[in-house]
């Protein structure tokens, strides 16, 4: 177990190091002169005075060797200081923290909702392949996969906000404003979860230990609960983690349509405006979270499968 933790920890640190170097180098991509980028962002005039440029280089510390610059930037970044946004002139760390919290809330709500529906639906479909529940599930998932969010979201607003008046149409203000975007965001993962749960459970329900459990007198439902779900959980956890990592980077369409101040909108606007510090911080944060999620997935595998625990020297 310790061996495993050590190895995972090393991989995690290495990944973060590479990511930080790449993030640090973002300003050098394109025109190659960060000072010019900063000046361009501040003043509209395309013709920059060479003296001003030189002064800006010194002010930003760009006259120092690259390695020193990197270490200084890394030191600040580790303390959560990614500098000021070129556009909003606010500390990037604060902007990012707020947006991340919003995106995490939205992503987790959507994915847990998807799991809550897909677990029983997929299992039910797997218990009788080709049966009525299976046909209904296939129809539903095919529909959900085919319908894009930019159609689903306006329809949701139209029905639940404008016609029925149950939910706010947009904004980020309390739990009520979370419902509609989470619902829209949940539909596609719901479809994919249902499919993978169905496939996994069909395999599991054919396993010899299921017949053995039935031969001890366990009913079908009990058998599935006690011996089916855990064994079918592996691929579901993998897919869940992939979706979570993806949604943490923000879901631009849903965030823009519902006017939600999440990661998707933040990064979208930063790209449009060439807001380099925001891009750097966003990049580091998203990759770091993805690595953390992957580590959690591996730990979940260990928790579920005792044989794996054994082979990792528990």
């Amino acid at each position: 177990m310790w061996h495993f933790a050590l190895r995972r920890g090393t991989v995690l640190l290495l990944t973060l190091f590479v990511v930080s170097v790449v993030a640090f180098l973002i300003p050098y991509i394109g025109e190659g002169d960060p000072a010019l980028l900063v000046l361009r962002a501040r003043i509209a005039d395309p013709n920059v005075d060479p003296a001003t440029l030189e002064a800006m280089r010194r002010q930003l510390g760009l006259d120092r060797p690259l390695a020193i610059q990197y270490l200084a930037w890394l030191g600040d970044a580790l303390r959560g200081d990614f500098g000021l946004s070129f556009i909003r002139r606010a500390p990037v760390g604060d902007m990012l923290g707020g947006a991340l919290l919003v995106s995490i809330t939205l992503a987790l709500s959507a994915l847990l909702l998807a799991l809550l529906v897909s677990a029983p639906l997929g299992t039910l479909a797997a218990m009788r392949p080709g049966g009525r529940a299976d046909t209904a599930a296939t129809l539903l998932t095919q529909t959900l996969i085919a319908i894009p969010e930019y159609w689903m979201a306006p329809m949701g607003i139209l029905i639940f906000a404008l016609w029925l008046g149950w939910l706010p149409s947009a904004g980020w203000d309390g739990p009520a404003s979370l419902v509609l975007p989470a619902l829209v965001l949940a539909l596609r993962p719901l479809a994919y979860f249902t499919r993978i749960i169905r496939a996994a459970m069909i395999d599991v329900l054919d396993a010899p230990y299921i017949t053995a459990a039935r031969s001890r007198g366990l009913g079908m439902t009990q058998t599935v609960m006690r011996h089916g779900l855990r064994n079918g959980a592996m691929p579901v956890i993998t897919l869940f983690a992939l979706w979570l990592a993806g949604l943490l980077g923000g879901s631009v369409v849903v965030e823009v349509i519902f006017a939600i101040p999440g990661m998707g909108r933040l990064i979208y606007e930063a790209v449009i405006n060439k807001d380099i510090p925001v891009l750097q911080a966003g990049f580091v944060a998203i990759v770091a979270l993805a690595v953390v999620i992957n580590t959690l997935v591996d730990l979940a595998y260990l928790a579920i499968n005792p044989a794996l625990r054994h082979s990792h020297g528990a």
Binding site: A207, Y209, S215, R226, H227, R230
Partner: peptide, 23 residues
């Protein structure tokens, strides 16, 4: 369900595959 395990017990060919690996 009241018959299986209770009045008729069963064992099979591949004993290791007959045990749920997670339990």
């Amino acid at each position: 369900d009241g018959l299986r395990g209770n009045r008729i017990g069963m064992i099979f060919q591949q004993p290791q595959a007959m045990l749920d690996p997670t339990c």
